[in-house]
């Protein structure tokens, strides 16, 4: 039996399912025992995805107390002897995983986006050099296999429903030397990763980026951008799609004037439908698109918005 520990993401339950999917890719379907470490105990009945959910006896541990979480997880490992430990590559997860790896004296592969079995060896695939290259990395030495997993990289397939056990683990954490003072929302903090439809702009629509809003309104979508627009100050980094931006999995991605660099495509994980509008039909993004519209992006917006409004007017 392969024992797997997953650090649960208190904010995004899909992440837990994605990490469970990774355990299946590593060990196969049947031989897995999965334990989720939940930092903020919840009252609700667990969904049946894990074999067990563990809470620390001391109650909640704040997500920013990476040292405390690593210490607790290491104690848990001592008790259960995990084969695999997975941490989401989220803001806080990225600070916990390295500490835990150091405590356990094991290697850590960051931001994994793929798992491959090569002969007897397991390769963890991750982007490097700003996403221009992918690297296949193997573990060396004894101890559990450890990695942080990029969100949205492993779409969950449904696993078996389990009778989830709740376990309270005796662990008392020391107060952190870090004090949380407060948080303020960043303006317009809507997350492009949660959007079903993204209207995305690149270098070809640099001067008319605001026009994307027209299409955004009629399609009830969100706007995103390539790095080019972020670097030119037209779009905010929060809405950047790509290797150094966010990985998104919208159902529909409309790419307006985006060339489609490897780094940009790295951010498009599981796009069901890709429509590319580009003056150059040879632009790299066009080779990946389901539909290519050859021509000016602004004209495209105008026409399509009119067409959709026409339908709405006629009550369609």
């Amino acid at each position: 039996m392969n024992r797997c520990l997953i650090l649960m993401d208190g904010n995004r339950p899909e992440t837990d399912l994605e990490l469970l999917e990774v355990t299946r890719r590593i060990h196969g379907e049947s031989q897995i025992y999965t334990m989720g470490l939940e930092l903020e105990p919840k009252d609700e009945k667990p969904s049946g995805a894990f074999d067990a959910i563990v809470n620390f006896e001391c109650g909640s541990v704040p997500p920013y107390d990476a040292a405390g979480i690593a210490m607790g997880a290491a104690a848990l490992h001592e008790m259960y002897g995990f084969d695999t430990i997975l941490v989401p590559a989220t803001f806080f997860g990225r600070m916990v995983a390295p500490r835990l790896a150091m405590r356990l004296g094991v290697g850590l592969v960051a931001d994994v986006t793929g798992i491959e079995h090569v002969g007897m060896q397991l390769e963890m695939i991750r982007p490097a050099y700003g996403g221009k290259l992918m690297a296949g990395i193997v573990k060396k030495g004894p101890g559990p296999l450890m990695m942080s997993i990029r969100e949205n990289a492993f779409p969950a397939t449904s696993g078996t429903i389990k009778q989830t056990r709740r376990i309270v683990f005796p662990f008392d954490h020391q107060p952190s030397r870090m004090t949380f003072i407060g948080a303020r929302e960043k303006p317009q903090a809507t997350d492009i990763r949660d959007s079903e439809i993204l209207i995305s702009g690149g270098g070809g629509i640099l001067e008319n980026f605001s026009r994307l809003d027209d299409l955004k309104e009629v399609l009830h979508a969100q706007v995103s951008a390539s790095r080019r627009l972020v670097d030119s100050g037209v779009a905010s980094r929060k809405i950047q799609v790509g290797q150094s931006g966010k990985t998104v999995s919208p159902r529909l991605y409309i790419a307006l004037g985006i060339d489609g660099s490897v780094q940009h495509m790295e951010g498009l994980r599981h796009v069901e439908h890709l429509i590319a509008v580009n003056t150059n039909r040879e632009a790299p993004i066009c080779s990946l698109a389901d539909v290519v519209v050859v021509g000016d992006a602004v004209e495209f917006i105008d026409r399509l918005v009119k067409r959709i409004q026409l339908q709405e007017l006629s009550g369609g």
Binding site: V106, V118, K139, V293, V294
Partner: peptide, 28 residues
């Protein structure tokens, strides 16, 4: 080291069957 880079490669983009349209009435 506890990890080793076994290989590096450029990501393969999968080619799809696609439709190419003009930016005109018919295309829209």
């Amino acid at each position: 080291s506890r990890t080793e880079v076994r290989r590096s490669f450029v990501k393969n983009m999968i080619k799809k069957d696609k439709v190419i349209l003009n930016n005109d009435r018919e295309g829209i």
